[in-house]
Simulated assay, not measured.
Amino acid sequence: MKSGLGRTLAGVGALVALTATAGCGGGADDGGKTADKPSAKASATAEPGPKPLGEAQLKKAALAQGDVKGYRITPASEDEIPDVSVPADPASCQAIADLFFVGTEPDAEARVARSVISTEQTDATLLKVGLLAHEEANAKKILAEVREESEKCHAYEHTDYQYKDVKPGETPKLGDEAVAFTLRGDIDGDKMTFGYTVVRSGSTLVVFQALNALGGAEAEVPDEVVKAQMDKLEKQA
């Protein structure tokens, strides 16, 4: 798996170079509005929730080429989403660190991911969208952990790279509940900004990752990509 991780991070560097060259050349309304934020340590409800979607259902619900005008959408490679959780330092930032590879702890029962890249040459944002099927209790627990860490984890190390300036964003009104945050990373000397939006829709978690390959301004997940994915998922569910 070490070689797979190496290829993944090398791929990030390659995408940065390609994007930099291109740049020079040219739901439910009340989701996430709860007044009391759930604790990451809260015990799971004993009531059974909706059955997790299977892999075939996730693939049908995932974005595909042509779903969002102005974007090229392709399945993410296995190297981009390795089936392993790499320890973060400190461990109190693990849930956030896992999202880099569209992962969670516990593992999803099924998972698909898509790479989404704007066809505009001046757009340096690289996007990744992941759908993860969980038991509903686990989905709630994971989102609570991500929310808590976005507020309390300020810097960490993951896969030998440094991340800092973790900041919670405005709570999105998406799905049953959602959380958003930003951070900055240093990968092989390249300064990058990341933006994350994580949504729970029933027992499915949707991870939106935006990477500004040129650094500088904060990375943002485009509204049209979020809307297209959430609409498609909710029709499938």
Rank of each mutant, 00 (worst) to 15 (best):
Ala113Tyr: 00
Val207Met: 04
Val116Arg: 07
Gln162Leu: 10
Val179Leu: 02
Lys37Arg: 12
Gly189Asp: 03
Ser115Val: 11
Val198Tyr: 05
Asp79Asn: 14
Ser39Phe: 02
Asp29Pro: 10
Gly169Val: 05
Glu145Trp: 03
Ser43Thr: 12
Glu151Ser: 13
Ala213Asn: 09
Gly70Cys: 08
Gly103Ala: 15
Asp83Ala: 14
Val129Ile: 04
Val12Lys: 02
Asp160Gln: 14
Cys24Asp: 09
Tyr156His: 12
Gly215Tyr: 00
Asn138Lys: 12
Asp186Ala: 08
Gly4Phe: 12
Tyr161Cys: 08
Gly25Ala: 11
Leu132Gln: 10
Met230Pro: 01
Ser150Lys: 09
Thr171Val: 13
Asp89Ser: 15
Leu132Glu: 07
Ala108Ile: 06
Thr104Lys: 08
Ala20Tyr: 02
Leu63Gln: 04
Ser85Val: 13
Val68Glu: 01
Val116Leu: 08
Ile142Val: 10
Gln94His: 11
Thr122Ile: 02
Ala144Arg: 05
Leu211Asn: 08
Glu120Val: 11
Asn212His: 07
Leu127Cys: 03
Ala213Arg: 08
Ala76Gly: 09
Asp123Ile: 04
His158Lys: 08
Ala22Ile: 04
Gly169Ile: 06
Val16His: 08
Val179Ser: 10
Arg72His: 12
Leu99Ala: 10
Lys37Cys: 05
Pro87Met: 07
Asp231Met: 03
Glu135Thr: 11
Met230Ala: 02
Thr159Asp: 14
Met1Thr: 13
Thr8Ile: 07
Gly175Leu: 03
Gln229Phe: 04
His134Pro: 01
Ala64Cys: 01
Gln229Leu: 05
Leu126Gln: 06
Leu63Phe: 00
Lys167Val: 10
Glu170Ser: 13
Leu214Val: 10
Phe181Leu: 10
Glu145Leu: 09
Gly26Lys: 13
Gly175Ser: 09
Lys235Phe: 03
Lys2Ser: 13
